[in-house]
Structures are given as C-alpha cells and as structure tokens.
Design a protein around this nucleic acid. Structure first.
Length: 267
DNA sequence: ATGGCTTGCACCGCAAGA
C-alpha cells in the first residue's frame, strides 16, 4: 500500500497537478491539505474519473483536508472522523478513514505564525489535543498512519540553515517537544527509517527563489504506528511537481507499506 | 529588510501561509 501526503495550497488551482501526479503515481491513498474550498466545490467527479473516491472536510478560503482512495479498496464507512474528537474547532484540519484495515489520517497542523502569538498558542493546544486523541486511536488501530503537513521541522537536518531558523516558528522547542511526544507514543517518522539524501525538504517558500536554492524545510510527513513501521519498505519526497508551472509550495511525500508481508506475519 | 510570492475574497488591497 502506497500512502501519500500533499499540501496542495488550493485544490481548485492544483487539481490538474493532482490528476497528472496520480496518473504517474497511482498510490492507494492520497492525503491532501489546504484545499481552500467549501465541500460543495470539491471536485468529486473529476477525481472519480481518475479512479479515486473522495473523503473530504473543507471550508471556504482556508484549511480543508481530504483523503483520496483508489477504487476497489475497502473503506470502513462508519469509522470516518472529522477533526480531533473532543477538541472544539471551527478550522477543518483533520480527517481519518480506515482503508483495508489501515487507519489513515490526513492532518493540516496549524501554522502557528510565531512563538508568543495567539496563533502559536492555538497550535500548541491543537498539538496537545492531537496527542491525546492519537494515544487512544493507536490502541483502537494498531495499524495507523498519521500523515500531513505538520508545520514542524523536527530536527536541525530538516531546515537548510538551522542557525537562521533558531527560535522561530516550525523549529521552536515547544513545537519540537510536541512532535517528540508523538514519537514517544511509538509513532515512527517513516522518512528517517531509511537513508536519505542530505538537505531533503518537502516545502520551499515561493519567494526569494527558495526552491532553486533548496532553501526549504521538511515539514510534511508520514508517521507510522510500530506495526506499520515494521512493514514499511520506503519513504520518499517527490520534488518533481514543485518544479511544474504554478506549483504548490509543498511536495508530495509517499510511504510504502508491504501489507502482504504483514498479513503473512499475522498468520 | 516584517519585504520577498501565491491564494482567496472581494472589490483593486487585504489576510494568511511557513
């Protein structure tokens, strides 16, 4: 099973990219963030024509998340979740479905603006609620993938110039501590399970020729429960769509799970 | 250097992203 996360920064603008990327990369689940459109404008038909079912939670202008599931895969209909249970939020930032027994979560973590701001406080509250829910969810779903735009660069390797970033949003000690509390729950950063090129990033600012200079950050991730991590055979960032005309500022990140191996192991 | 791009909204400049 191939699971991808991609912050598309407007699904309306990026739909052609999503469709051509899927044609070349027919993954099983494509988790999207920053749809920036209300549910009534979600391009269900176009995505269905490409062979995918859409599960989505949108809103006007901001946020919005979705999971596109390849036709033929079983999705547990009663098991859908919209936003973090128990966390009262009008921002649409999380959706979860169960695909072939794998709990797949598409999450758009708050940006946080800057430490000390109200938005940063909201980010920390959101992260605390997420941790609480994920802890329970991992008990209910031993096969769990938490994917999305984390808006946290967990390690100094995950930005081009750590000295420039010090103390700022995305790398602050509070955010990194919240990220490592997820890791302490047992989640594995699938990207770091494998040898990767140095200076591997998933987001590059639109400004200052950041992509050309590779002035980026690795903030988009697929975290896996221990059971899924044990059958994960690879994780990669695909930089190609970032170089397309009118791109998203984020690149898709794909984790590969050898689910057949898992089923054999369970017998 | 609080700028630099890109998007959506709603009116032609603003908020928000990371």
């Amino acid at each position: 099973m191939h699971i991808t996360t991609w912050n598309v920064n407007s699904l309306k603008v990026r739909l052609p990219h999503v469709l051509s990327w899927l044609e070349a990369n027919p993954v099983d689940a494509l988790c999207l963030q920053e749809l920036k459109l209300p549910d009534e404008k979600f391009p269900v038909a176009e995505i269905a024509a490409a062979g995918y079912r859409s599960f989505f939670l949108g809103q006007k202008t901001y946020n919005g998340v979705a999971i596109l599931v390849k036709d033929g895969l079983h999705v547990d209909e009663v098991d859908k979740i919209h936003n973090i249970p128990g966390f009262d939020d009008h921002q649409q930032r999380l959706i979860a479905v169960t695909i072939e027994g794998v709990r797949v979560i598409s999450a758009y973590f708050p940006n946080g603006q800057a430490p000390g701001t109200e938005k940063f406080e909201y980010k920390l509250r959101w992260l605390a609620a997420l941790e609480l829910w994920i802890k329970d969810e991992m008990v209910r779903h031993p096969r769990l993938a938490l994917t999305g735009d984390f808006n946290i660069a967990p390690d100094d390797r995950d930005v081009l110039d750590p000295a420039k970033w010090e103390g700022q949003n995305l790398v602050s000690p509070e955010e990194r501590a919240a990220f490592f509390r997820l890791i302490e729950l047992g989640l594995v950063d699938s990207f770091r399970k494998f040898e990767q090129a140095e200076k591997s990033f998933s987001w590059w600012d639109y400004r200052m020729f950041a992509f050309r200079r590779n002035a980026g950050a690795r903030i988009d991730m697929v975290l896996l429960s221990p059971l899924l991590a044990s059958i994960c055979t690879g994780c990669a960032i695909d930089k190609t769509p970032r170089a397309w005309e009118q791109p998203s500022d984020h690149a898709p990140v794909t984790a590969i799970l050898d689910t057949a191996q898992h089923l054999d192991a369970k017998v």
